[in-house]
């Protein structure tokens, strides 16, 4: 066994400290040590995107990052975007447009879509499909996911305009 390291992460704005072996994957540290179970484990082989989190302002697959590599990182998960009593617009739109069936892929989808809309607030349908291509869904056929994201983009832009 290699020595555990003292890991410091900021997750959803909150500072966390924990002990982890360098080889532990970020997704396991988040879920098993910090109890942040929004990001899911679908494939654990870097393919499905269910484990997507935002790290340092970029979408990454938390099953393909060693805990040690994440030392000092700022991380956002789906828990940081909305809460049951105050859903994020993206979450509202996924509900309204049936952007989910079993819901397993949804936290990764929403966390990825959130970053996509930060980078490109008014994407075309093609840009949404290209930007979401690291997230797999076995249920919906994607159509309603794309619709939900485009609808969320419109709403977020309208909210921004209203605020100005």
């Amino acid at each position: 066994m290699s020595d555990k390291m003292h890991l410091k992460l900021t997750v959803n704005g909150e500072a966390h400290e924990t002990l982890a072996e360098p080889r532990e994957l970020l997704i396991h540290v988040l879920r098993e040590q910090l109890g942040i179970t929004g990001p899911h484990i679908g494939c654990e082989t870097s393919h499905c995107g269910a484990c997507t989190v935002d790290m340092g302002g970029k979408s990454v697959k938390a099953c393909t990052v060693f805990a040690a590599q994440a030392q000092g990182a700022e991380i956002t998960t789906v828990e940081g975007l909305g809460a049951p009593d105050g859903l994020h617009v993206l979450q509202e739109m996924f509900r309204e447009h049936h952007g989910l069936q079993c819901g397993f892929c949804t936290p990764g989808m929403i966390t990825r879509a959130w970053r996509l809309l930060q980078d490109n607030p008014s994407p075309t349908e093609e840009e949404v499909r290209f930007g979401m291509s690291g997230n797999l869904c076995r249920c919906t056929g994607y159509q309603n996911i794309v619709k939900a994201i485009l609808a969320a983009a419109d709403q977020m832009n309208a909210m921004k305009e209203a605020a100005e």
């Binding site: 995107g49 393909t64 990825r112």
Partner: peptide, 12 residues
């Protein structure tokens, strides 16, 4: 580069 992997993979 746009044809390599997917957005999350290309970010790292």
């Amino acid at each position: 580069a746009r044809q390599i992997a997917d957005p999350q993979v290309r970010n790292l």
